[in-house]
Design a protein around this nucleic acid. Sequence first.
DNA 1: GCATTTTGCTAACCGAGGGTCACTGAACTT
DNA 2: AAGTTCAGTGACCCTCGGTTAGCAAAATGC
Lengths: 201, 201
Amino acid sequence: MTELSGFPTRKQLRDLKRREIVRCATVKFGTEGYENVTLEAIAAELGVTKAALYNYCSSKNDLLMQCYELGMDRLVEAVETALAGNGSAAVRLDAGLRAYTVTMLRADMQYLWSYTRPMVTSGDKRSVQTSRDKLDMMFRDMLDAGIKDGSLRADLDPKLASLIILGAVNWVGIWFREGGGRSPAQIAAEVTREAMRGYLA
Amino acid sequence: MTELSGFPTRKQLRDLKRREIVRCATVKFGTEGYENVTLEAIAAELGVTKAALYNYCSSKNDLLMQCYELGMDRLVEAVETALAGNGSAAVRLDAGLRAYTVTMLRADMQYLWSYTRPMVTSGDKRSVQTSRDKLDMMFRDMLDAGIKDGSLRADLDPKLASLIILGAVNWVGIWFREGGGRSPAQIAAEVTREAMRGYLA
DNA sequence: GCATTTTGCTAACCGAGGGTCACTGAACTT
DNA sequence: AAGTTCAGTGACCCTCGGTTAGCAAAATGC
């Protein structure tokens, strides 16, 4: 035994701090907007100086990317769980899309669709794109399954259909703002049903 | 006669210059990204100094808004023309959506969807929103007409349907990049057909 | 035709904020 | 105890959006 158990190691501590920074940045970016948040403000909220942040990210944009990745992981996990449920492919697809939408409508996730995409520089694109592709593939596979089990139209093109459906659903993130009478869950249910309408068997 | 005709008046000249600035900025924002374009660069391309630009816009963000307005006008006009054609409401809706998509896929229009929305500050929102609302209304009216003339399903909800369809179509602007085998017109036709699928009578 | 104002622009500057660097003090290593 | 690693600091630089004083030329007034 080189150390007491129960205390985080140096590496773990470092990662915990990194996560805390990302969490803090996510909230601030999401509520105040990327442009309007200074690194100084983030640092101040964490009780350190700006320069300290550069131990955990290489630039402001990189910090945003880390926020994006965290959000994407959350999204992938929510959808994965929902898609793994019971029922026909159509039913599971519906659940997956609803999970996707509801997660996306969380206040601190809004920036994902509002701020992040344009900021993605060619260098960062790779890691972001893999999460996106993964989600895309999950939905596409479910569309395939729907053709096989007969719950979706046999003549649909999974690639095109997933673009259409995800487009419709992503758009919600743009136009939906809290305050209208309906809850995110209700909105998600309506939009998902509507987006899938043309594809049900 | 206070002046020779055929020469632009002071006011006209000023407006021409303004347009030229906006056109130049549009191209640069579209191809290089808002963040990466300095006012100095725009000014240099126009052969003036940065400060001169401030005679025609109040801030960099305002310049972006002027680009946005120009693009929106273009979009509204293209859609208006297409919607005014002959045929059933479904046919005209199809034409309108294709016009919308093709216009949106122009290289110098990409920034509209990639860069502008998040930059819109609450003050500017008004003017931008009116163009958006106008487009939305045009499509919604056409959906209404489709219910009336029987070319679209009688049970569709125009408000929800327009959000779904426009969402699907707007998404193209995000994922489409030149170079794939198909032309913008082909893409537009495919996506439009697919997005309308669930709503045809 | 001369004085006055208005206009379009420039040169020089300011300040915010992203990013860097030399250094420090504490903790781990040997 | 001496050396090494490392998180964090404070002072600094530089880019870039935005401002201001002033100038020359065109428009306007008398």
